[in-house]
Amino acid sequence: MLIEKKESYSKKLLGSWDTKTVVSVAIGAALFGVLLDFVSIPVFTNTKLSVAYLIPVFVGALFGPLPAGLVGLFGNIFADLLAGSGFWPDWWIGNFIASFVIGLLPLYGARIKDGIFNVKHATIFTITTIIGLLISFGFISPFLNTVFYGGEKAINFAQGWIAVVSDGIVAVVAGLPLLYALTRRYKKNSNLTKE
């Protein structure tokens, strides 16, 4: 029983890598890249208010954290490949971690596909998302930027914190309604009558 539970946790963490998952991650990453490059509102150097962070919310809800994290990682790489404005591995890693944490949903019992998402899940989602963003963009990305490219620490951290705030706004303020909308969508629609 205990072993079984362990296995199911690792499956929840890694996702099941069938063809559907591969395709979803590929397409999710492509969406992430397109949105990051073309649908964003610049706030600061290298920092944008972007709806791209709704993609890991979506993929995480359906497939779990690792697929979501890879969507963030490859999505960011795609964005760099499309734009041609340099490679920023400090942000790739940040996006991987942030998206991974955002995608933890199935681990604390939110099962969007079965129509299960309640206030408790919403609260955990909000808290973990903010913590995840703090770790990734508030600490890891700026730290790596200082190491890799020798930027000014205070500026890098300021950029990181702005990213935490702006991406947090997108992931939580826009992400929660998205999650509720998806839950409604997957719930069975019975008792529909014409009036």
């Binding site: 409604r184 969508r185 629609n189 529909l192 014409k194 009036e195």
Partner: peptide
């Protein structure tokens, strides 16, 4: 009109 309150996905 009779379906005005229906969710779109139905």
């Amino acid at each position: 009109y009779a379906m005005r309150h229906w969710p779109v996905n139905a």
